[in-house]
Write a protein that binds this DNA or RNA. Structure first.
Lengths: 181, 181
DNA sequence: GTCTATATCTCGATAGAC
DNA sequence: GTCTATCGAGATATAGAC
């Protein structure tokens, strides 16, 4: 691992946050450069094109979610609860990274879609290994996906619109896994 | 109800499909006009701005999903199964309409977000009335949302990635509602 | 390694012919 | 009611100074 220049990291973070927080359209080269504190020309020294910027983001995505998978596999409450618990968007760096890649995938980016699908298959494997049954594992995955999608499009929360807390959702997950709450 | 001109309908359909199938960025005035078979100037005669185009789409959304809610309330299998069953994206007009509004909401449009939230609260009410319990209703809603989101970002299906059919997901829903499969 | 300047393209919207 | 022509803003990307 060669230590990447500081500006490179700052540019990737700026790109991630702009896409996640203000949408793909807001993440212009100029806006990304400004948020990272460099000029447009400076950005284009590190990433020769917008596509290169995306490629850099997907590399970070794969690396960070490989680590997250380790945490999920080792969680004392089990992968299912870990997955659903962390599917509530709370604005962490990892949340923003996921949402950014999700938005790019929804925007039509094929490599983003592939990176996302690979990560999700990994999660499904862990949940299935825990609950034994494929359909139940899928149902739990879908709940997590729904939670993420719902809580990530701008501050809306199941608490607000559906009157249900995360703990109550987790209790339903426990009913499915057979774990006592 | 005044009968709207044919071109108006064609433009709204073109806008809906471009947003749903190729993303918000692809839905430029020129692309929408071309898909509807008119010129950019022709489009701007019917809709004076891009915002007016969005407003027209949201009106169609509200009208069509008010009708869908009637079907959901009257479904012989019950609202929960109806909801999850129809949450699998199959590319119908109603599917494309929902995905289009979802994408616009995710892109930051406040009116799109409001229209979506109102519709989802309506669904939640029906599901809760059926299952009795708020948390269970929310869990079912989340499964549907997850299914929609997953199956709508370009052809991916739970069957393909998770090895689970819609019927198997519905069986899990039945476990939650207490209905026998 | 970072900047300014600029070329080129595409977007939304206007104007006016038909 | 629909078209072509065009404007002004803002986008990506290039060139070259420092």
């Amino acid at each position: 691992m060669s230590r990447p220049p500081k500006a490179r990291e700052a540019l990737l973070s700026a790109y991630r946050d702009l896409v996640a927080l203000e949408g793909e359209r807001a993440a212009t080269l100029e806006a990304v450069a400004a948020r990272a504190g460099v000029s447009k020309g400076g950005l284009l020294y590190h990433f020769g094109s917008k596509e290169a910027l995306l490629k850099g983001l997907l590399e970070a995505f794969r690396a960070d979610f490989a680590l997250d998978r380790e945490l999920m596999a080792a969680d004392p409450e089990g992968p299912s609860r870990y997955f659903v618990r962390t599917s509530l968007y709370t604005g962490t760096e990892l949340d923003r990274l996921f949402v950014a890649v999700l938005r790019l995938a929804q925007g039509g980016s094929v490599p983003a879609r592939e990176a996302l699908a690979a990560t999700e298959r990994g999660w499904h494997e862990l949940v299935r290994a825990e609950v034994g049954d494929t359909a139940t594992a899928t149902a739990i995955m879908l709940m997590g996906e729904g939670l993420y999608q719902y809580s990530s499009y701008s501050g809306a929360r199941p608490e607000a619109d559906f009157g249900t807390s995360l703990d109550e959702v987790l209790a339903v997950v426990d009913r499915l896994t057979g774990r006592r709450s």
